[in-house]
Simulated scan of single mutants.
Amino acid sequence: MTAPTYYAPHGGLPSQHERLHDRAIFTDAFAVIPRGVLRDIVTSRLPFWNHTRAWILARPLSGFAETFAQYLMEVSPGGGSETPEPDAGAEGALFVLEGTLDLTIGQQRHSLSPGGFAYLPPDSGWHVHNSSPAPVRFHWIRKAYDFVDGLDVPDPVIANEQDIAPTPMPETDGVWATTRFIDPDDLRHDMHLTVVTLQPGGVIPFMETHVMEHGLYVLQGKGVYRLNDQWVEVEAGDFMWLRAFCPQACYAGGPEPFRYLLYKDVNRHPSLRMGR
């Protein structure tokens, strides 16, 4: 079995001699941000983050995907933040691609290596630091937590993908599997972050059309995704952003597994009031 890998962008700029061409797409149903456009000039600096830059891959947009923001963070040695989250009502999830991230939640300290995951409840007092000699690169997903009377706020979750046995999808002989960091039956959670793995030749064999919004970051391998009415070839480092009800399916190509990090919103009634 091929060991998992986690593609992380390193920025830079293309040569002045390169041809102006890439696979970026933005439609009213989906967006594709290929890894080739994650360059230095499109990074953001964030308040109270030291020695850090971010590629902001998704943010709420009226009429498009509205539930979440997703960042690719790069924290240089000695960098980090004591006050990373500006919104006390926001929950978060981290997934490490490269390097080692020191995470503190309250009084508990954790070290997250590649494949490391953390769920961060709202107002949990977390902060991060890079005490290693190399940059650390990780995803940060933010969502306004949807509080429900009678349900407690979830506890923090710390895990690593490589310590969790993937759950095979029914009747697929393990060709299509999902690594779950959060118990899907725990209704305190209103979002999930999972790793989906398709072995070479594996397929999602129907056009999923559903209410959940998605952020999909390709960790490893390559595949072909059907998004709405288009077939799009994607590879490690590409990001796909899908609004609710965008039809979707895919098949894996190439000699190694096709794996991606998947965000979706779950377990809540749709609001009947627009903009809320």
Rank of each mutant, 00 (worst) to 15 (best):
M1G: 13
T2E: 13
P4M: 05
G12E: 00
P14I: 14
S15H: 12
H17I: 12
E18I: 10
E18Y: 05
R19T: 14
F26T: 10
F26P: 08
F30S: 11
V32K: 06
I33N: 05
I33Y: 09
P34A: 04
P34H: 13
G36M: 12
G36A: 14
V37K: 00
V42I: 13
S44V: 15
L46I: 15
L46N: 03
P47R: 03
W49M: 01
W49Y: 14
H51G: 03
T52C: 08
R53L: 15
R53M: 13
R53C: 10
L61S: 11
L61T: 08
S62R: 13
S62I: 14
T67P: 00
M73G: 03
M73A: 01
G78S: 06
G79N: 09
S81K: 02
E82P: 01
T83N: 14
P84K: 11
P86S: 04
P86W: 03
D87K: 06
D87Q: 03
A88N: 02
A88Q: 05
A90Y: 14
F95Y: 13
E98M: 09
E98I: 03
G99H: 00
L101A: 07
D102R: 08
T104P: 03
Q108V: 12
H110M: 08
H110Q: 13
H110F: 12
L112R: 09
L112Y: 09
S113C: 11
G115E: 02
A118T: 09
P121F: 06
P122W: 04
D123E: 05
S124F: 05
H129I: 03
A134L: 14
A134E: 12
F138Y: 15
H139Q: 04
W140D: 04
I141L: 11
A144V: 08
F147Y: 07
V148P: 00
V148S: 07
D149N: 07
D149T: 10
G150Y: 15
L151I: 11
D152N: 06
D155Q: 13
D155A: 15
V157K: 02
V157I: 15
I158D: 08
P166G: 07
T167E: 14
P170E: 12
E171T: 04
W176S: 05
A177Y: 00
A177S: 09
T179H: 01
D183N: 15
P184A: 09
P184V: 11
D185Q: 14
L187K: 15
L187F: 15
R188M: 03
H189D: 08
D190M: 11
H192N: 05
H192Q: 10
L193H: 04
T194M: 02
T194N: 04
T197V: 02
L198I: 02
P200M: 12
G201H: 10
G202V: 01
I204K: 03
H210G: 07
H210R: 10
H214I: 10
V218F: 15
L219D: 04
K222A: 13
K222V: 03
G223I: 02
R226Y: 11
W231N: 13
F239W: 03
W241F: 14
W241D: 13
R243N: 06
R243Y: 02
Q248L: 05
A249K: 02
A249V: 01
A252T: 05
G254I: 01
G254W: 10
P255N: 12
E256H: 06
P257G: 04
R259I: 05
V266E: 10
S271L: 07
S271H: 00
S271F: 02
S271M: 07
L272A: 12
R273C: 06
